[in-house]
């Protein structure tokens, strides 16, 4: 009975998202003739691919009733590390050694650093019982500082054509970032629906005490979830860096808010235990279309922020209403 009720709630949230997206697209298409074009469609998909990667990680965390404010900074740091390893390698003058990285090595390096930072978030939250909001807020600052140290405040540019393919290339007529986001989404859907880890994530978010009493090692699950979110932020960072052909020290500023917005708009409850990856994808598409539409309609960037904030607020109010029922 409870399961049916939960499914109905998720379906209702998804339906609300679909309706919101259709209404949004209709309004923008009426007001701008450039909106419903192939070029713009690919452009929107390419832009939201990064947010989808981050949002998927954020969804897993929010499902455990946590939050991660550091994904934007981790994105910047991992993008910079990937770029730095790929372009400059590591020089050890004292040992007269140069450690060079192939493209694969640089990508793995960035993703490993991302997952380690995510793991550290999880460690602080589980070991020292620091609230996720505070623990990840600290990581936001730490990772940004490390990015500045790694880059010395300068962009790392000219990363070469193979690296640029990740952010700007096409495969079978579809942009590479869209493929990457698609794979991430499919894997996340598989994990949440078909694996024990997925069931544990929902169980922890639904009722942490009950999960502990059921014998679930909640600390281990949280460590895994935060590590995955860190790795996905790194994937987003690699895509951003590749697309710009440059690792910017201030990249990813505010991305955590877009990710949280996508999660909330997609119907995932901030109190945990309720939501879906599909809903988050829908939320990310809504945010992406909204961003694109506001630009096409020549809305002032200041008003764009106001509109985005209002949309998030409405989504949270709807979420609260849903929870009361």
């Amino acid at each position: 009975m409870i399961a049916i009720q939960r499914n109905n709630t998720i379906n209702l949230a998804r339906l609300q998202s679909v309706i919101a997206l259709v209404v949004l697209c209709t309004i923008i298409a009426i007001l701008s003739d450039k909106f419903l074009t192939m070029d713009n469609g690919w452009n929107v998909l390419r832009q939201i691919a990064v947010n989808i990667c981050i949002s998927v990680g954020m969804t897993l965390i929010v499902l455990t009733a946590g939050i991660d404010l550091s994904v934007g900074s981790i994105l910047a740091l991992c993008g910079a590390i990937t770029a730095g390893l790929s372009k400059n390698g590591i020089k050890l003058p004292s040992a007269d050694l140069f450690i060079g990285f192939t493209l694969l090595g640089a990508l793995l390096g960035g993703i490993i650093v991302g997952s380690l930072l995510g793991w550290f978030n999880g460690f602080v939250i589980t070991k020292f019982k620091v609230p996720p909001f505070v623990g990840t807020l600290a990581m936001l600052t730490i990772a940004r500082g490390l990015t500045m140290l790694w880059t010395q405040g300068h962009p790392i540019s000219n990363l070469g054509a193979p690296f640029a393919t990740i952010g700007t290339g096409w495969l079978l007529g579809i942009p590479v970032p869209v493929w990457i986001a698609g794979v991430v989404v499919l894997l996340a859907i598989f994990i949440t629906r078909q694996t024990r880890l997925g069931r544990y994530i929902y169980a922890i978010g639904g009722n942490e005490n009950a999960a502990i009493l059921s014998g679930i090692n909640i600390n281990k699950v949280k460590l895994i979830v935060y590590s995955i979110a860190g790795a996905l932020a790194a994937v987003g960072g690699i895509m951003v860096t590749s697309r710009l052909d440059s690792a910017q020290p201030n990249a990813g500023t505010g991305y955590e808010l877009d990710a949280i917005a996508a999660v909330v708009i997609g119907g995932t409850s901030l109190s945990g235990g309720k939501g879906s990856i599909g809903g988050t994808v829908m939320g990310a598409v809504i945010i992406g279309v909204l961003n694109n539409g506001l630009v096409l309609l020549n809305v002032s960037p200041f008003w764009q922020q106001v509109v985005k904030g209002a949309v998030i607020l409405i989504a949270v109010i709807i979420d609260k209403g849903g929870n009361k029922k």
Partner: peptide, 14 residues
């Protein structure tokens, strides 16, 4: 993966 990812040379030669 490590073999395909990393190569090491002498800095002075580089």
């Amino acid at each position: 993966l490590a073999y395909k990812s990393v190569f090491i040379v002498k800095l002075s030669e580089l």
